[in-house]
Each structure stands twice: as C-alpha cells, then as structure tokens.
Amino acid sequence: MPTTYFQRSGLRRYLNETGEVWLFAQRFFREAVRRPFEWRELLNQCFIVGNQSLFLVGMTGLIMGLVLTLQTRPTMEDFGAEAYMPAMVGVSIIREIGPVIVALICAGKIGSSIGAELGSMKVTEQIAAMEVSGTNPFKYLVVTRILATTLMVPLLVIFGDAVALFGSYLVEHMKGDVSFQLFFNKVFRQLSFSDLVPATIKTFFFGFAIGLIGCYKGYHSRKGTAGVGRAANTAVVVASMLLFVLDFIAVLVADIFFDL
C-alpha cells in the first residue's frame, strides 16, 4: 500500500497518537478496577513518586515563593498596595502557579523516569517476559504508576503551595516586617473554597496526565537505546504540553461551576 502524504504527515501521526493514548487510558480504567490489585507495588510507586520528589518540589516551591514575592513587591509598592501582597501571592500560588509549576516539575522528574523505565523494560523485553510468566505487565507496571502519580501529584502540589507561601512569607517578613500570623491571616482571608477546590481537583488530572503519558511513551517505545531516550524525552514534552491544555480546560470549567 503506497503511503500518501497524509499518512506521512504530522497531523496523521498526531491523530494516531491521540487515538492510541485514548485507548491506553481506556485500558487503564478497565485494568484498574479489575482484581487482583497490586497494592504493594502501588505503595512502592507512591513512595517513589511522592517522597522522592519531595525535596525537588520543596526547593522549587520555596524559590517560587521567594521570587514571586520579590518580583511583585516593587510594583505593589508603587501602587502603595504592599498590604495586599500576601493576598495576591496567596491567590496566585494556590490557584495557578503552585499546581502548574509543581506539575511541570513532576512531569520532568516522574514522567521522564517512568518513560525511561518502561521504555528500557520494553526494549530489554522484560515486559514480554512478564506476559509469558503470567503476570499482567499492564496492571503491574502501568496501573500502579498512573494511580501513583494521580494520587501523589495533588499532595506534592499542596506541599509545594505550603512551602511557596512560606517562601513568600520570608520575603514579606524581611522587607515589610509582616508577622507570620498576619501574613497567613491575610492569605486565607482572601482565599475561598472557589480558589482551593478547583485548584486541587485539577492537580489530580495533572497527575493522571503525567503518569498516563509517561507510561504510554515507555510502553510503546521503539527498539534500541535511542528509543528509550526518545520515550523519556517525548513523555516530558507531551506531558508538559498536556498539562497546559488541561490547565486551560480546568480554568474554563471552574469558571463555569465556581463563578470565579
């Protein structure tokens, strides 16, 4: 069958990939609710995804809070509105910057590691070996990892937010002599559930997307060591892009339901 331009084009590849990812996700949901559950492996993956990303997320969050406050403060001072700093920083971190930055960090760290791990297993035919030995490799490898990212990324975001707010507080305390209590009082006075709840819900989707793309890319990596590198790389790139798309959709939906 001669290949047409359409078959070789990026659009066709994109559509094909999208369809494959959709099917992969469907399979995940089917396998996820089917017994037996791989609890032990799930906990292990949670540990790897959650605990082992904690330092990275904490550092990023702290610096994010420091930098955001340092950068915004002069402008707010120009308006004579430095009293609104905690409220403004709080809202921007909780609503948007915290979830997105932490999710991007996770996409870089976790997405790439999953893509590389599964890719190398695929390349070294460990996955095929598991199938032969009677273990369901999808259930053991994919379901646990996707569940782990889906559950852990929101928690990492909460940590990241908390540390970022603390970083912001450090700058405020240094520059504006704002007390700890006053700072968090102002932050939470400005916040409402319509800020916290949609922001938390969307992090589950972020985590799911990171795990899904990482697993898909690794599970379908091509032969050879180049394939593994490519799997890791595309996992991060696609997951990051998908995060922004999801974020946009999440904001639109939240706008409808929460009347932001």
Binding site: I158, D161, F188, R189, L191, S192, F193, D195, L196
Partner: peptide
C-alpha cells in the same frame, strides 16, 4: 488550609 478558609467563611 480548608479549615482556615472555612473559618473565614
């Protein structure tokens, strides 16, 4: 966080 926000509301 939820409690703090909730107590405000």
């Amino acid at each position: 966080a939820a409690y703090l926000i909730g107590s405000q509301e």
